[in-house]
Design a protein around this nucleic acid. Structure first.
Length: 272
DNA sequence: TACCAGGACCTCG
DNA sequence: CGAGGTCATGGT
């Protein structure tokens, strides 16, 4: 798939100016170490790779600031302690973040992963190393040239196919990019710009701001996973309403994205 | 077998 | 505007 974890390392294929570069990322003695199993990339490419990984792990965020906020909140206090050090796993590529969000709209995650796998293996580039194939997420240039039926064949709905191709075309024309979005003065304007695109609603806009644009106050309040996590973690009889979620979140100001991410994380070990 | 899924769009009143 | 219908298929 898009990355592989093996023997304490994570392998990730990235593309820098037409070059495919396989990164092997390890973590020992509080140091993140990046190695390149294929070829010998120049210092320029190694720096670009580090920039990508820096964004991927959201390393610019000041986690201690989050923990100060979390300590003032009954829900977050426990989660911050339990998952101390956890950072949002980001999706640095805007097209990838948007498409993945659209794939996940109103379908179960298992099927969303199936769709993503088909999408990536049909339209993405790859590199094979020691018998393992590593994939790049497809480029918007490639997807912009597709027809709705090309995606319908992979069991995308017509609506989702239209959204994805529309966004790819907007990006290919230079109308939509990470840089353009980040030129906005504040995150409300970024949110509004995203909502202008067909297929991007409030949830997708917040999701992308959280996972791609590194905005820690982005908050997908309507997210079903968030609702389930709150229900489980607090021990509610039913899922909270939007208004109830907002009540729980009054103390999360500035760190709603991290609160959400830690709550999502708690869904993985609700049975343990 | 129902019901729901990490929503968004469209139509109507 | 706000509510209700539609998309469409896989999981549980």
């Amino acid at each position: 798939m898009l990355h592989k974890i093996q023997e304490g390392s994570v392998y990730k294929l990235i593309k820098i100016e037409e070059s495919l570069i396989l990164c092997q990322i390890g973590f020992t003695h509080h140091v993140i170490r990046v190695e390149f199993p294929v070829g010998k990339p120049s210092i320029y490419f190694r720096q670009k790779a580090v920039e990508y990984i820096w964004e991927w792990f959201d390393l610019d965020q000041d986690l201690e600031a989050f923990y100060e906020v979390a300590n003032q909140d009954q829900v977050l206090k426990n989660l911050a302690h339990k998952y101390y050090g956890l950072r949002i796993m980001c999706i640095p590529d805007l097209f990838e973040a948007l498409v993945w969000a659209i794939m996940g709209q109103q379908i179960n995650l298992t099927f969303a992963y199936t769709l993503k796998k088909r999408f990536v293996e049909q339209f993405g580039e790859s590199l094979t190393f020691e018998g393992e194939t590593f994939w790049l997420f497809p480029s918007y240039e490639k997807i912009a040239s597709l027809s709705v039926d090309d995606l319908r064949n992979l069991q995308f709905t017509s609506r989702k196919a239209e959204y994805i191709i529309g966004i790819a075309k907007a990006m290919a024309k230079g109308e939509l990019s990470k840089e353009i979005l980040l030129q906005n003065k504040d995150f409300i304007k970024i949110h509004q710009s995203l909502l202008m695109m067909r297929g991007i609603g409030p949830w997708t806009a917040d999701y992308v701001m959280m996972k791609c644009l590194h905005i820690p106050s982005a908050f997908p309040v309507s997210d079903v996973g968030l609702h389930n996590a709150l229900k489980n973690f607090i021990g509610l009889e039913r899922k909270p309403t939007i208004e109830e979620v907002k009540e729980y979140a009054v103390n999360w100001e500035g760190w709603q994205a991290y609160a959400t991410f830690y709550l999502w994380r708690s869904l993985y070990d609700k049975n343990t």
